Amino acid sequence: MLGLIRLIAVLILSAALASPGQAFDTSAKSAFVVDVGTGTVLLAKNADEPLPPASMSKLMTLYVAFEALREGRLSMSETLSVSQQAMSYGGSTMFLDTTDKVTVEDLLRGIIVLSGNDACVVIAEALSPDGTEAGFARFMTQRAQKMGMTNSTFTNSNGWPNADHKMSMRDLALLARRIIEDFPEYYPMFAETEFAFDGRAPQNTQNRNPLLKAGIGADGLKTGHTQAAGYGLVGSAKQGDRRVIFVISGIDSAAKRAEEAANLVNWAFRQFSEANVVKAGTEIARANVWMGMQSSVGLTTADDIRTLVPVLGGNEINGEVVYTGPVRAPIAKGDQVAELLFAPEGLPQMRVPLVATDDVARGGFTVRLKTVAQLLLARLQQGPEGAL
């Protein structure tokens, strides 16, 4: 009796449909770009494919460390010992050795600015359930799954090459957003361009993020590079009230990574503007109701819905209201009963929950009797082969 019903609603925007030339043709093997304020995905290329993340996966180690700081399991002034395991890592390091006692604050800056593999291990061993980096990696994986990062698996704390150590670009963007929004007190560290730890390796004090000094609003987050992964970057930039998060991976060189990232940021800010789709409380469609005191109920959004649209284009977006119906009474005002699906041309589809505008009580005996009579009449009209 119940079936999927699709209703079409045309929503008029102040700016909308893309002209054909708006898509960004990235040379990255995989990429993901999202506008934070509206949630509009501007670019998704192999975004859900688990790939070697290299040092970009250090963001997960940092997230776990920030949680520990907030919960009091770590403090910024606390000093941690350096194990042989931590000291043994090559690549990007803080040049720590087993005689060192390093504050958590220095270790965090060593990870963020210097991309220290050794610093990650010191943090990992301090927070690991069993005191090992492997144990911390298992915890990272479990925590990532709970955060919705379903294409992420960690085998170490720093992105050291391992066939089973993988993340998707969408997961990295989700993680970047969580860091920005969950830990605003620590996020400014990602914009620091230099960290000279204890006077060691004066040639190794610069942040590897090529966009921090580019004057385009970039303020984070993390680069990555291994032979298997190529050159990658998880970045974020803010201009005015808008913030974008972007992830690219599989670039051929550091120079091309810097150029591609800057072009992506400029494209995201220059080629799109915000537009209203639905104002909260505005009825945009009605859903049929089964066995209710009313035969239908209004549908609206719980919050104002805005999206990004290309600056060149028309003035309409076509949307579908989708629900499984008729919706069975009783229905409470605010219950989610449908979804609004829409996509400015050239951009991925967005799905927005739709809620009931009013309460609909379950009908009494008279309503139920009338409904049964209508069903019987409909069956008779359809003949012996008819079905509802």
Rank of each mutant, 00 (worst) to 15 (best):
L7I: 08
L11H: 08
A15C: 13
L17C: 09
A18I: 04
P20F: 11
Q22G: 00
K29N: 11
K29F: 14
A31Y: 01
V34R: 02
D35P: 05
V36Y: 00
G37H: 03
G37K: 08
N46Y: 08
L51H: 06
L62F: 07
L62V: 12
M76D: 08
S77Q: 14
V82M: 06
S83Q: 04
Q84S: 10
A86W: 06
Y89M: 07
T98C: 12
D106T: 05
G110P: 07
I112N: 01
L114Q: 14
A124D: 06
L127E: 02
G131D: 10
E133L: 02
A134E: 15
R138T: 11
M147W: 13
G148W: 08
T150G: 00
H165G: 01
A176E: 02
R177F: 04
R178V: 11
F183L: 03
P184G: 08
Y187G: 01
M189E: 06
F197P: 04
G199T: 00
N209F: 04
L221W: 02
T226P: 13
G235V: 01
G235P: 00
Q239M: 08
R242K: 09
R242I: 02
V244N: 01
D252W: 08
D252N: 15
N263G: 15
V265L: 10
R270M: 02
F272D: 06
I284H: 02
A287C: 11
G298I: 04
I305K: 00
T307D: 11
V311E: 07
L312H: 13
G314I: 05
E316K: 14
E320H: 12
T324A: 13
A329E: 12
G334Y: 10
D335I: 03
F342L: 15
A343W: 14
D358N: 14
G363D: 03
T366A: 14
V367R: 15
L369H: 00
L369M: 12
T371R: 11
T371M: 05
A373M: 13
G383Y: 13
P384C: 07
G386K: 11
